[in-house]
Design a protein around this nucleic acid. Sequence first.
DNA 1: GGCCGAGCGATTGTTCTACGATTTACCGGT
DNA 2: ACCGGTAAATCGTAGAACAATCGCTCGGCC
Lengths: 235, 235
Amino acid sequence: MFYDLPVTDEWGTRLAGDRALLDRGSTAERVADVLRQRITEGVFLPGTRLSEENLREALGISRNTLREAFRLLSHEGLLEHQLNRGVFVRLLTSEDIRDLYAIRRILECGALRNLPAVSVETIKTAIEAADEAAVRGDWSAVGTANMRFHQAIADLAGSRRVSEAVRALLAELRLVFLVLADPRLLHEPYVAVNRKLYELLAAGDAAAAEEALQRYFDDAEAQLLSAYATVNGAH
Amino acid sequence: MFYDLPVTDEWGTRLAGDRALLDRGSTAERVADVLRQRITEGVFLPGTRLSEENLREALGISRNTLREAFRLLSHEGLLEHQLNRGVFVRLLTSEDIRDLYAIRRILECGALRNLPAVSVETIKTAIEAADEAAVRGDWSAVGTANMRFHQAIADLAGSRRVSEAVRALLAELRLVFLVLADPRLLHEPYVAVNRKLYELLAAGDAAAAEEALQRYFDDAEAQLLSAYATVNGAH
DNA sequence: GGCCGAGCGATTGTTCTACGATTTACCGGT
DNA sequence: ACCGGTAAATCGTAGAACAATCGCTCGGCC
């Protein structure tokens, strides 16, 4: 005698999570995941050329599959495809930085507007992670936590497309951080700013939070542009 | 005796334009252009499966190149890639429609906020094209002109990424129009709405224009959802 | 009659090989 | 030092081959 499996909601959600691990998608997508990881880790710095032949051998896949992965990452803005020259880790210009902040202003501030009922759970989590990393002096982790904070703000819009767009934008922005020297200078100042913003949101004052977010964008953009100008002297 | 070519700014911009014609990009990109065209024309209706073998033969290209083109269009949201099953012209759900309007609200309204100096040239052009097409009774052309109108609004943000994001969103939205029966019903009502919006902008009243845009989104979303429910009965 | 599993054809996923086209680097002549 | 040409490296694309997977049909069985 056997019992039927009891089907519960809990099962459904758990299996859906496992699925992502089993159906890891096509080889090309898994390769793209690996490369994305390495790029955001800074193993491949912006400007680096990724040779088809070298990577093909290193990853043990065919050129076709590798090229499909390149296409994926090019569309995400992490790689740049130059005809007959190969793919390069994207090296952003100052103009790119301005543009990134322009669209982030619109998307993230837009997410704070017309909030039905604010759920600040994940935002709080990100804030706490940033605090904790700051205490440890792990400024890279602080940067990651700050990005999660902004991702959580964007998620408030309740739109899959908004969330994914912001995810891609933050990944691009990480390319800028990678070429700048001092991660502490880049991330530490915003731990307090973000906490203040969180408190405004938690208190239900979305308008004040949006104002604070605007000021944050102004400051961060200016800081990043000036830091970038010194490193990236010629365009 | 020869003269050196005088190098002027005018030259630079003109040559940059010509370049797009010469460097037509890789074969994969040109194939993607063709397929995109056919999809937006409605030759391949949403839900249609695109066979690799058939298209390969029809286009006279290799499978590799075709698959690269598929990747490009999948990332644009026009195609959907199902592992081991092939690619299909994307069939949007009602949830997709809601999401599209959610992000359009944020992006287009955001573009109207914080305008430095409004240049309503291209907006006017789109309005006039819509009027002219409406007189001819070419409702499909009216739809195209209306989309150009919204694209022009998004362009006011002055951000490349905002413009490209809205371009992709409008292309997705076109997939919805393709499965609905009556193009007149879908597009005609908004000719007057858009003209009114243009006049508010031309008068410099950006706040009123934003308000009108919000109402437009509410109306259009509701109309589209109800029309979609009748056609697309089961999700 | 309807359910279930084996087998089969069609299509996709991936690899491998090949070759033309383009870029890049090197090198000798002026 | 500049210019031009040749050779090597790399990319772009094609094509064939094989494995993996899906969808369907056909029997067998309850």
